[in-house]
């Protein structure tokens, strides 16, 4: 079976107390011009959803993927903000969902943080997706004959009720362009791995074993019974390498600028071993890519990118052609809507 090119991403973070937003923009444009698939916008100190919206307006083709905590945020606000980023990015938004340790964040929000943070996160994610579904395609009709703006039969209360949170809906924001922007779960332990396997479109991990497709032996049947996902449904993404089922696996790598050739060789090996994508954490992104990309192309891991369209500095005149969606880049099938009855 032919192997897909290695997905390549950059993690952008500015952890200084006075972040340099111009530098963040410059790094995102370096990543876009180099043809990377997405940038991950780490949480804090700046709000990652707001940074994502700004970068979405300043770029034209790259995936824009903010990180938020499921533990300390409201699914309603996260759902509308991500839908908005997807609108600005015209279908290039994604989402890295993190789970905090309850003891680390208790007292930072005005609700009671539950001890079962993975369970809370699963409900958070489900509520966000339900809100994205709450508007069907074509709900806005602008029918001057009947004076109706909305087809209200196509907008739904979600009435989500979990053990930790409840959301009535519908969303205040129409369905985002991708339907469901891809959800990447950051895996830090067994519980977040199970969350990723049960609900994620992709996972991020620093563990090469997991990134290569390991971890499948851990009570697979039990895990699926517990999450309600039919094991036969856990199909590989369309066009995926097919070496394993489940979410797209992305390896997070700290870049050592002194050994970029070694990094290229390692990434080629990881790709051969089943890793589908890599998220680079590099201080000097431009310098890293200048060495890494030709080496990866030479090794047949990932071709060099063609130049894409330039960003629209006014926001008023986007190119007619829509950019590739992030779901397409990740090889994910089109999202379905739980409220749509198949014709």
């Amino acid at each position: 079976m032919p192997t897909r090119p290695l997905l390549l991403a950059a993690s952008l973070a500015d952890r200084r107390a006075t972040p340099d937003h111009a530098a963040l923009t410059a790094r995102a444009l370096v990543a876009e011009r180099a043809g990377l698939d997405l940038v991950v916008l780490e949480a804090e100190p700046l709000d990652p959803l707001l940074v994502a919206a700004r970068l979405a307006a300043q770029t034209a083709s790259i995936g824009i993927v903010p990180v938020t905590s499921a533990t300390t945020t409201e699914p309603f606000h996260v759902s509308t903000a991500l839908a908005t980023v997807d609108v600005v990015a015209r279908g290039r938004a994604g989402w890295v969902l993190e789970v905090d340790a309850a003891d680390d964040v208790r007292g930072t929000v005005t609700w009671e943080v539950p001890g079962d943070v993975p369970g809370d996160a699963a409900e958070h994610l489900e509520a966000v997706r339900a809100l994205w579904d709450s508007w069907e395609e074509g709900a806005v009709i602008r029918d001057t004959a009947t004076d109706r703006f909305l087809d209200r039969d196509k907008v739904h209360h979600v009435d989500f009720e979990g053990r930790h949170l409840a959301v009535r809906g519908p969303s205040i924001t129409p369905r985002p362009p991708q339907g469901h922007p891809p959800v990447l779960v950051r895996v830090t332990d067994e519980a977040t791995f199970e969350l990723a396997r049960a609900h994620g479109d992709a996972l991020l991990t620093t563990d090469p074993h997991l990134a290569r497709g390991g971890g499948e032996a851990t009570d697979r049947r039990d895990g699926e019974a517990a999450t309600g996902r039919d094991p036969d449904d856990a199909a590989a993404p369309a066009g995926g390498p097919g070496t394993f089922a489940g979410p797209v696996r992305l390896l997070e790598v700290d870049v050592d600028p002194a050994d970029l050739d070694g990094l290229a060789a390692r990434l080629a090996d990881e790709h051969a071993a089943g890793v589908q994508g890599v998220v680079l954490r590099a201080d000097d992104l431009e310098g890293t890519l200048a060495v890494l990309l030709p080496a990866l192309a030479a090794a047949g891991v990932r071709p060099l990118a063609e130049p894409g369209p330039a960003p629209d500095p006014t926001g008023e005149h986007p190119p007619v052609a829509a950019p590739p969606s992030l779901r397409d880049r990740l090889g994910l099938p089109a999202a379905t809507n739980r409220f749509e009855v198949p014709a």
């Binding site: 994502a52 919206a53 700004r54 509308t80 908005t84």
Partner: peptide
């Protein structure tokens, strides 16, 4: 009916 999240669209603006 329907609007973007206000702070998010302002960040884009």
């Amino acid at each position: 009916v329907g609007r973007p999240d206000a702070m998010t669209i302002l960040a884009a603006l």
